[in-house]
């Protein structure tokens, strides 16, 4: 796999950094080269939190990047904050459940798509698996890791919670599956990128 760069942004507390940790752990377990760097400015205490993630089959250079292959913005503010990481090759994804100024969307993108992750989490699953839906969506959009590897890494990360409440395991795996399908569906729908 050639280099794939993902910028994942959301509000502090949405679990963006956990998603990045699980995904890179999964990639590492599949013997990929991978780097993840959190944007850990003062913003980690209330504000937009960004994870810069890279996957490759070759050694990865600088830990940060200017333009991403995939940008995922999970809040209204995150859209404006991450628009600059998008260029004509970028797949820009945002959550349809937030209100924001459409002018904040990037000027350049290969494709801009909206996914209903928040609504799905709130209505069909549980608000706290919102970030896991997003993780599933990243896999659906990029295939950076196999679904099985992601499940294993998720299991590893949340083992202590699953032990206390085994029903959480099913909930999380289901969230991941739904996220993946959601992304695949969005890609097929060919949303116009010039709005």
């Amino acid at each position: 796999m050639s280099l794939i760069r993902i910028a994942l942004a959301g509000e502090g507390g949405q679990g963006v950094q956990s998603v990045a940790e699980i995904l890179t752990e999964a990639a590492y377990n599949e013997n990929q080269q991978t780097i993840y760097i959190p944007n850990f400015g003062l913003e980690q205490r209330g504000g937009v939190s960004i994870a810069f993630i890279q996957f490759s089959d070759k050694r990865i250079g600088a830990p940060k990047f200017n333009k991403a292959d995939v940008v995922i913005a999970l809040s209204g503010r995150a859209v404006g904050r991450t628009a600059g990481y998008s260029d004509e090759n970028t797949l820009f994804v945002y959550d349809s459940g937030f209100d924001f100024d459409k002018e904040d969307l990037p000027q350049q993108a290969k494709k801009i798509i909206a996914i209903p992750a928040v609504d799905t989490a709130n209505q069909k699953l549980h608000p706290k698996v919102f970030n896991i839906i997003i993780m599933g969506a990243v896999i659906g959009l990029t295939n950076v890791v196999s679904f099985e590897a992601a499940k294993e890494a998720l299991e590893h990360k949340l083992a202590y919670k699953f032990e206390k409440d085994p029903s959480l395991r099913e909930l999380n795996f289901k969230a991941m599956e739904i996220g993946k399908q959601m992304a695949e569906k969005s890609l097929q729908e060919e949303v116009d990128n010039n709005d």
Partner: peptide
């Protein structure tokens, strides 16, 4: 540096 401190790599 802060990048090396915080980033994950193998």
């Amino acid at each position: 540096d802060g990048y090396q401190a915080k980033m994950r790599e193998p």
